[in-house]
């Protein structure tokens, strides 16, 4: 999946995460993450975002995420939505796609 423009999904509400995905000229996903539960779940949130993007075949993007204690399913859903918006794609897979 190719990131064409800025795509955003999510809110700043408690138990949600806002994910912003932007195009990048070089290979690799550059991720910045802020989280209310950084110590306990920071690595887990990063893992879910990266795996979700991998599942979509996104290999080049800037990703900025601000987390307010979202569960894994929410993190994945917001990442997917942001990526589809950034790729200007509507070929959604409604069964949860690559996510378990």
């Amino acid at each position: 999946m190719e990131i064409k423009k800025t795509g955003v999904a999510g809110t700043m509400e408690s138990s949600d995460i806002i994910v912003r995905i932007e195009p990048k000229n070089t290979e690799g996903v550059e991720l910045t993450l802020e989280s209310a539960v950084m110590q306990q779940y920071g690595r887990q949130i990063e893992k879910v975002i990266r795996e979700t993007l991998e599942g979509l075949g996104v290999t080049s993007a800037y990703v900025n995420a601000v987390d307010k204690g979202a569960l894994d399913c929410t993190v994945a859903a917001r990442t997917l939505a942001a990526a589809y918006r950034a790729a200007e794609s509507k070929d959604y897979v409604w069964n949860g796609g690559s996510i378990r």
Partner: peptide
């Protein structure tokens, strides 16, 4: 199961 196992505080 819902939240995942938290990493310990440093």
């Amino acid at each position: 199961r819902i939240a995942g196992k938290p990493e310990p505080i440093k």
